[in-house]
Design a protein around this nucleic acid. Sequence first.
RNA 1: GGGCGCGUAGCUCAGCGGGAGAGCGUUCCGUUCACACCGGAGAGGUCGCUGGUUCAAUCCCAGCCGCGCCCACCA
Length: 903
Amino acid sequence: MTLEKNYNPADIETRHYKAWEDSGVFGCGLTRAPGSQPSGDPFTIVIPPPNVTGSLHMGHALNNTLQDILIRYNRMKGRDALWQPGTDHAGIATQMVVERRLAEQGVEIDRGLPPSKDGNTLIDRDTFIDKVWEWKAESGGTITGQLRRLGASCDWARERFTMDEGLSRAVRKVFVELYRKGLIYRDKRLVNWDPKLHTAISDLEVEQREVTGSMWYFKYPIEGAENKYITVGTTRPETMLGDTAVAVHPDDERYRDLVGKNVVLPLADRPIPIVADEYSDPEKGSGAVKITPAHDFNDFEVGRRHDLPMIDIFDESGFLNENVPESYQGLDRFVAREKVVEAMDSLGLLEKIEDNPMTVPYGDRSGVVIEPRLTDQWFVDTKTLAEPAIRAVEEGTTKFVPRHWENTYFEWMRNIQPWCISRQIWWGHQVPAWYGPDGEVFVAETEEEAAQAAAEHYGKTTGVTRDTDVLDTWFSSALWPFSTLGWPDETPEVARYYQTDVLVTGFDIIFFWVARMMMMGLHFMGSVPFHTVYIHALVRDEHGQKMSKSKGNVLDPLDLIDEYSADSLRFTLTAMAAQGRDIKLATGRIEGYRNFITKIWNAARYAEMNGCRPDPAFDPADCSLTVNRWIVGAAAETEAKISAALEEFRFNDAANAVYQFAWHSFCDWYLEFTKPILSGDDEAAKAETRAATAWALDQILLLLHPISPFVTEELWEKLAPAGGRAGPLITSSWPSIPEAGGTAEAAEEMGWVIRLVSEIRGVRAEMNVPAGAKIPLRVQGASGRTNERLSRHEELILRLARIDSIGPVEGDVPKGAVQVVVDEATCFLPVGDVIDIAQEKDRLAREIDKIGGEISKLEKKLGNENFVSRAPEEVVQENRDRLAEFARSREKFQEALTRLSAL
RNA sequence: GGGCGCGUAGCUCAGCGGGAGAGCGUUCCGUUCACACCGGAGAGGUCGCUGGUUCAAUCCCAGCCGCGCCCACCA
């Protein structure tokens, strides 16, 4: 029963987690056993689903700590809390991982090409998919296990996976419905092509990197004119083999005569036209620009306007294909680049080369340069879907916290481009489209339906083949807030928990995920998926660098949990989660908050050792002792602060409030104040104080629980009242502290004691009075109230300020005494030979000087007529009071100085 | 090019119209019976710069300087 001297978090944390999970307290109302359902309104959060094969990083730790705080807080408030967990199949990322693992075993997927290495085996699509599921079975529990270790109180019974049958059905239904409404369509367009992954990717998956490249200037000979050239600049020389025009500005005098003529494209030896197009900027380069419609987004538009041929010169791996001269065929694009430059140079057609700072598109997964490529792909008409999603945020139906992220959302949504959703990979939701023999497309939820539609179309039964593409992972993620609840079925969960309440996520996926959930939620459910989007910061290293493996500055949350405890890590992340700023995480901070957890543990040990056990009969509104009324009032204030902070997502304020109350108010002062009572012989006072101590500690456990659930649950259990607790802390009610009479007076009175003790301690230290030495305290000019307080708190003043006796100044003021001023009273501390007169005079003079500074500032302010007449009355009065206070205290110090000088 | 954010104590950061704050670090003192992962006391800041608004500006506005990020473009 007795608490161990040292707190051992590891065992305790895993034990409580298991007990919570086994007892079903994480469950929402609909998954709880009958009779144990919460009566309050639902409070729902859907987890940002981590990659099923991933592992917990610091971003997850922050993200899930904040969600868990909201869930635990609302659960304690009596809400029917649902934290819907699950994982994401992460199409490209997972496929890459599994392919890499297979490669180690000499296995690769059959892309219709020979094996890349001799002796490698090729596997077909079905076999590969089986391998991915195997890998999922093997590693899929890792991250959910780690979330458990962190303390995440998810409703695990409801765990979902984006490739579950139910969620897959939701994907198919959404695809079919959007297709039928014309909001999904197939089109041959220029898309971002990843030559390493052999798939199209969306604009968002392209990362622009700053590099210093080169600008090559080529001379293209004018057809039928000797030694006449037009110069074009390019950053990608190899694409010239796919040029189908040169464009000049229609108003550009230099080239006016050439428009309509041809140049002979060198190397390829093709005549291509010189066209006039406003895309060409006379200020840039030579003013003439080569046009490669199949490999550049701008050139593509120019090509459309002038009906130019589109020559695709690359294969799916970025090697040159049969559309280029034979000597270039089969070359890698960067090899071809060098060869083109060499060839042009040897023909005398390379005018110059310049360094050129530029941004180059890279695939965010593959890390290779993206090639715009003309292919057939599936697109979502996001422009149409975005409209209601923009309106919802404009109208405040969904709010972002911090608010400024709404700008980011608006900017992207108002300029949204069609979303390319098809991927030429194998792992993911296969596009529910089938093709007839002539290429006619039949979109349907099942093959049977597609076959039937085909039969009707052709007037006879015929075979259909399924589209081999899969959908962008984010397509299924976009449905997450309702697909996880059972949609498209009309489940009780959908009815009760949609719309959800808060989405907690990082700013890096506002476009990828938040925006798309808004669009899909509004379209399919008719309402926004959440009323609040809380955007948290990025966790960086202590120097503000992004954590990355290559920099070696990664802090692994699991390591930190092992070293310090989950409670400590959670508290640290919470205390640092101020809005709108990145978190620079130093292990020193975690250590500091680990100490806080230990402090709580020790305070509980103290309470236990002193028989401070929660008393169900204790009424915090009815304490007879000032010190107890004081702690009750302070607890009430803290509860109000924390509740307000959590309602407004000011997590750091909540953490700091409980820290301040627990460590400073409770441990530093209250426990010290009450020691004389507990060791005294007033049984009634003792009983009340024991109960009050236990009660205050309980409030700390309750208030701290959402942030640091483990140590609080452990202490809650260990510090149970004689009859035991009604239930675990996790399902206990959030404190609602009754209005108690006299708390303001108690706060004022104990504040005075704190001032007095602090003043005395201060001068003792400054005057080098030995810490162990007890000295008398003689008070002059004390009011009746002060005398009352001195006697009421005599014992604790003796103890805390190391005083041996308290009394009034009798006769002459003590010689060789240090003096402090507290309100109207001057306190003399005769320290005998210890005092150094010169040093004390110096101290007093400095004090007077400091106060003098404040006084002159205030006098100047109050002397300003404009201030007195225009500032609010209470502000003026406040300043007058402060001035009077300073003046009185300066006077006391002045007197003290005079007395010393007279010695 | 467009947008967003940030410059406050040695470090990391709160505060954001009326008395400059916290944690860590640092200095001094202290191991008495919850805790040295502790207790007590202290030092440390022209709140980036320059103007403006206001009775009053770290806080609001403008400009500048320095950092970071996002989006777009790039012949």
